[in-house]
């Protein structure tokens, strides 16, 4: 299993790198204490807090303490909400997961068939129409498409709730807005992967033994084309979580994205830091997961491990 080991090592290096980068970003302003105190604190309060949090120690000592705390999964306490940061963020995670899930569903449900159709019907009007659609999806700012949907479906037609998280219906528009860009990358990737596979000999060979074109695609091409698509599917989950910052703000969806923006406004930076770390960890784990998924889909790799 040397392959798997090196993947794990790479993931660990990435995690360590992310922790380091976030640590130094938090100190970019000079005094991280100022990022953590609620508005209106006095100079003495700030000084006391600086000492209590150890921000008056040398940078390297702070760095070591930071890594140690995180290793013990101690994410700290919010000085604004007077509660453990872990709890504050964890409470919001299910909402973002639901949103990301919905967006992924939209992206896969539309992107994969669109990409497949573009490859199979290459050079027809259908491909051109879908290519336009995909390009639009890729260039749409999520907050604009979100607002347009609110205007049309929420305000004008009154079909869907314009904000909040009351029921499944309120998940529809945010999911579509968030999923659009991901849908485009799925479609592009699927198209390329399927085109690659369609040119292979086994397609001709399959037809030569009496399979229809459609059967060759279903039975052989799709599974082969899935391999490269799986990688970006995993990476896109990270992008969806990050994109949630904007979409949740547009739709007042109470996930970690909205929490991040609210916490910046209330100067609760420990919460923001935790959210960034969380999303990055998810991103790195999804990457690792994609590598493992290869093995399930591709027997050639299964044996190598």
């Amino acid at each position: 299993m040397p392959e798997l080991k090196s993947r794990l090592l790479q993931a660990l290096i990435a995690i360590f790198g992310v922790l380091t980068i976030v640590f130094f970003i938090m100190r970019l302003s000079g005094d991280p204490t100022l990022l953590l105190v609620p508005d209106g604190a006095t100079a003495e309060q700030i000084a006391a807090l600086r000492h209590a949090l150890g921000f008056d120690r040398p940078l390297l000592v702070q760095y070591g303490a930071y890594l140690l705390d995180l290793a013990r999964l101690d994410l700290g306490e919010s000085l604004v909400q007077h509660a453990p940061v872990a709890g504050i963020v964890a409470e919001r995670i299910p909402y973002t997961m639901a949103l990301a899930g919905g967006a992924l569903l939209v992206a896969l449900g539309v992107g994969l068939p669109a990409g497949l159709a573009m490859a199979v019907w290459r050079g027809t009007w259908l491909e051109r129409a879908l290519a336009g659609f995909v390009l639009a999806g890729q260039s749409l700012p999520t907050f604009w498409s979100g607002l347009l949907m609110i205007l049309f479906f929420g305000v004008y037609l009154g079909w869907l709730p314009t904000s909040g998280s009351d029921d499944l219906a309120s998940l529809v528009m945010p999911s579509v807005a968030l999923g659009a860009i991901t849908m485009s990358s799925f479609a592009r990737m699927t198209r390329i992967a399927v085109l690659d596979e369609l040119s292979r000999d086994y397609v001709a060979a399959g037809r030569a033994r009496g399979l229809s074109y459609g059967a060759v695609i279903l039975r052989h091409v799709l599974r082969n084309a899935a391999i490269p698509v799986v990688t970006i599917a995993a990476l896109e989950v990270g992008n969806l979580l990050a994109g949630a910052v904007i979409v949740e703000t547009v739709f007042a969806w109470p996930g970690i994205g909205q929490l991040a923006i609210q916490s910046i406004a209330s100067r609760d930076f420990l919460v923001v830091q935790t959210i960034v770390l969380f999303v990055s960890m998810v991103y790195i784990s999804m990457n690792l997961l994609a590598d493992l998924a290869y093995g399930v889909i591709d027997p050639r790799i299964r044996r190598d491990r």
């Binding site: 992310v18 970003i25 302003s29 994109g243 991040a260 830091q273 960034v276 999303v279 991103y283 790195i284």
Partner: peptide, 17 residues
């Protein structure tokens, strides 16, 4: 490493700081 932090979040955090 830089690419493991989703870009928009990295920007949000840094600008906020």
């Amino acid at each position: 490493t830089m690419l493991s932090i989703p870009a928009i979040l990295l920007a949000v955090l840094t600008v906020a700081v």
